[in-house]
Amino acid sequence: MMKKMTIDDKLGLDIYNTDEHESHIDVDLECKDEAEIMKLVLACPAECYKYVDGQFSFSHLGCLECGTCRVLSHDKIVKSWNHPMGTIGVSFRQG
């Protein structure tokens, strides 16, 4: 087995210039549709969406800016989605 790493360990290797306060994604955290929530939990490569003990949460901090959540749930859970402002967000050195 390869060394076990959490998603936070992995994202910690990437370079981020984060805007702690301003999120480029606006999420409806009041949503109660579990099927819809689970889609985002399963699909987000950065695990920005979490659903633990019936508690739905989102953090834009590790976002890889892929657009997956927008495509899966625009007009539903994802109320608005934009690229972060210039220079903000992740920078891939390898890519």
Binding site: D14, P45, L64, F92
Partner: peptide
């Protein structure tokens, strides 16, 4: 971790994780 993949990268150090559509 798949038995046909792991032997290629065993001991390798992860340097980046990325996602894209």
């Amino acid at each position: 971790n798949h038995p046909m993949v792991e032997p290629y990268i065993k001991g390798g150090e992860l340097v980046e994780y990325s996602g894209h559509l």
